[in-house]
Simulated scan of single mutants.
Amino acid sequence: MYITISAQKTNAGFPKSSGSFVKYLEKENEGLQPDEMEYFFDQSQDRIQPEQVIQEIDHNTAKLKQKEPKFYSITLNPSERELKAIKDAPQALREFTREAMKDYAKAFHREIDGRPVKVDDIKYYAKIERHRSFKGHDLQIRENQSFATKILALKNEIRNIEQGRQTGNIKALNKQIIKLEQKAPHQLRGQRIVRGMEKPGFQSHIHIVVSRKDRSNRYSLSPGSKHRASEVELHGKSIKRGFDRNQFFNNAEKSFDRLFNYQRNFAEAYQSRKLLLKEPKSYFLSLQKLPIKEQKLAFSLLQKAGINAPKLHIPKNNLELTLKAIHQLKRGVKRAIEAGSIGI
């Protein structure tokens, strides 16, 4: 499970309307019949039109300054293993989203009318997306890149010959291109994997548009707050403030496990990724201490995420840990996280 929270931003700053973002999230519905579409949903409704989402978010911005974000984007990215566990069922994804948003509300160190923030205070709209495409940071694209570079050079050579800028044998160059296409290490349905090609398998993830203001349009609820679980004196009153991202990420993960009786492996856990980034040696030691079955699954998950974990030098009989192995694993996990559809 990988979760992100970000304020939608453009070159000009924060957009005044959620319209462009909401329309972007409608891209998978293009050309579909109404009964085939994925609709926006919230805590109680399953079929919300995009026009309603835009109106509700855009009109819930009282007293926000021009330089403040009007809404945030949250993405819930279950791994392929997690999606298999729930059979990629839309209803299960909606159920998980609603539980995760309860965890989101609880992560605010704020009070509304003297009580903690509840999910009913949050104005949000979520949408399931089913597809992902390969991007430049994916393992398959990176390992195919040398072939892509050679193919591009040959195509440029052919273009120059056709336009009379140089001489050469176009037929022979085309044969070289065919051979390179076939030799590229990562193929899909008989074709070299390239950027923009749709990824196979379960790729479902959830986009959430959440208002900066609470449902009453009176309180600002910023998940981007740099203050965590603190209090400040304002107009003679003690005001709670802040948002705990670690709490949100941890609890959302636990909600998934509880809802679907999911047995989470060490390599899949948010706390493990955090441990890797902060204390890589402890991460290695924890991998070593796993039962054999769990250790094999952990290495399998790391490898699927694009990390050559089985090739790493991880001593079995002593505590010697090489910096090379640590850096390789950290770099691989970061790339896997950036890819979005990570296996961990």
Rank of each mutant, 00 (worst) to 15 (best):
M1K: 03
T4Y: 13
S6E: 14
K9I: 06
F14H: 10
S18N: 05
F21V: 12
V22R: 03
Y39I: 09
F41E: 01
R47L: 10
Q52Y: 11
H59K: 12
K63Y: 09
K65P: 00
Q66C: 06
K67F: 08
F71C: 07
I74F: 09
N77H: 13
P78S: 06
E82A: 14
I86P: 06
K87H: 13
P90V: 08
R94I: 07
R94N: 02
R94A: 05
E95R: 11
E99P: 12
A100P: 04
M101D: 02
M101A: 02
M101C: 04
K102R: 11
D103I: 11
D103W: 09
A107E: 01
H109M: 05
I112Q: 05
R115G: 09
V117L: 07
K123N: 13
Y124F: 12
K127W: 15
S133R: 15
F134W: 11
H137K: 09
Q140F: 07
Q140W: 08
N144W: 00
F147T: 00
I151W: 00
I151N: 00
K155V: 01
Q166K: 10
Q166V: 08
K171L: 11
K171S: 15
K171W: 07
A172C: 05
A172R: 04
A172T: 05
K175A: 11
Q176K: 14
K179L: 03
L180I: 02
A184K: 01
P185V: 01
R189G: 14
R189H: 15
Q191D: 04
R192I: 10
I193A: 06
I193D: 05
G196I: 03
P200C: 02
G201H: 06
G201A: 08
F202K: 13
Q203W: 05
S204T: 08
H205A: 07
I208A: 10
S211T: 02
S211M: 05
S211Y: 02
D214V: 02
R215D: 07
N217P: 10
R218A: 08
S220L: 14
S220F: 11
L221N: 02
S222F: 01
S225G: 06
K226H: 12
H227D: 15
A229I: 15
S230P: 08
E231D: 12
E231M: 12
H235G: 10
H235W: 13
I239Y: 10
F243D: 00
R245K: 14
N246R: 15
F249C: 03
E253L: 09
F256G: 01
D257W: 04
L259F: 10
Y262Q: 08
R264S: 15
A267H: 02
Q271P: 04
K274W: 07
L275F: 00
L276P: 01
K281L: 08
S282N: 14
Y283N: 02
L285A: 11
L285R: 13
Q288D: 09
I292E: 13
F299I: 08
S300V: 03
S300H: 14
L302I: 07
G306C: 03
I307A: 00
A309H: 00
K311F: 10
K311S: 15
L312K: 01
H313P: 04
I314C: 03
I314F: 04
K316T: 14
L319D: 12
L319K: 15
E320C: 01
L321E: 02
T322L: 06
I326K: 04
L329V: 11
R331A: 10
K334W: 09
R335T: 05
A336W: 03
G340S: 12
S341F: 12
I342Y: 11
I344Q: 00
I344L: 07
